[in-house]
Amino acid sequence: MTTFLSLVLAGVSVGAVYALVALGLNVTFWTTKTLNFGHGSLMMFCAMLMVYFASQGLVLALAAVLSLLVIAAFGIFIERFTVRPALKTNNSMGWVVSTLGFGIVLQGVAAKLFGSQAVAFPSILFDSEDFVTIFGLHVSLQYLVVLGLSVFLVVVLEAFLRLTRWGQAVRAVSHDPELGRVNGMPVNAIIVGSFVLSALLGGAAGLLVSQIGGTVDPAFGFNLVLFGFVAAVVGGMGSSVGALVGGIALGVLSKLIGGYVASAAEQPVAFAILMLMLALRPNGLLAQAEATKA
């Protein structure tokens, strides 16, 4: 029983990380029905920038803010030069290649600027030794911070979408951007804003996950974005609550499989879940099917 509870708590903690990544992917899906497959590279670059700025003597808080500002600028670049041109052609999937290519280029830039070896990441909030006891088990405070932040962001994003005029505008653009333009909505600004927000979520996730791992390197983020994508699909693309549910469910299941079968089976299980969801429930657990007029 102790082993089971330990695996479940570890899965919830790791699942919160997947949920954070899935939230960032969902934001661009709201407005453009696209995903930024360079999201993992944004996470990595933000963390490596943080390490660089801290090494120059900046206080950690200022280093984190500067890193997030740079990543926000990358969000604007991604929308303008990798996604918008591809969307000019109806039903084009060119954004898959362009965002993935951007991520690969950013990995190369990071390796050139900061080196290809892993570097130590500073402790922002808690050290790896800080923990609390839950049901007699030691749980890292770093994981609890990520879990709390994931829940907080889900609540904030849902409230934003449902209770604010800008949130209602985002939902309107998601359903019909051309109708939004006809009605005078700043559609381009809303779309750019979604990519900036997605980049900021990715940057924040990168900082938090790097703190948990203790190191960061140019290859960091690739596996995380894959698991985040699976979590988003399982929960339902475009659903904030679904991202949280899908991330935690995936984290718990993968840890149980890793604990009772083999740790090498965690990633294959994740993709088996993805294929199963696409076959049985393509819209995910919580996403609502959209009606389409002919």
Rank of each mutant, 00 (worst) to 15 (best):
L125Q: 01
D127R: 15
S128L: 14
E129H: 14
E129S: 15
E129A: 15
E129R: 15
F131I: 05
I134K: 14
F135E: 00
F135L: 14
F135D: 00
G136T: 11
L137T: 01
H138F: 11
V139F: 15
S140I: 06
S140N: 13
S140V: 05
S140T: 09
L141R: 12
Y143C: 03
L144A: 05
L144Y: 10
V145G: 00
V145T: 04
V146S: 01
V146P: 01
V146H: 03
G148W: 10
V151A: 15
F152G: 08
L153I: 15
V154Q: 09
V155T: 08
V155F: 15
V156R: 13
L157T: 06
L157Y: 13
A159P: 00
A159M: 10
L163W: 14
T164V: 14
R165H: 13
R165I: 11
W166P: 00
W166R: 12
W166T: 05
V170C: 07
A172R: 11
P177Y: 07
L179H: 11
G180E: 02
V182R: 10
G184R: 10
G184W: 09
G184A: 05
V187A: 09
V187S: 07
I191N: 00
G193A: 09
F195R: 01
F195M: 02
F195H: 02
F195A: 00
V196S: 02
V196G: 02
L197A: 07
S198D: 04
S198C: 08
A199I: 04
L200C: 06
L200T: 04
L201I: 13
G203P: 05
A204F: 12
A205W: 05
A205T: 08
G206A: 08
G206F: 05
V209G: 00
V209S: 02
V209K: 01
Q211G: 11
I212C: 11
G214Y: 06
T215C: 04
D217A: 14
P218A: 07
F220Y: 14
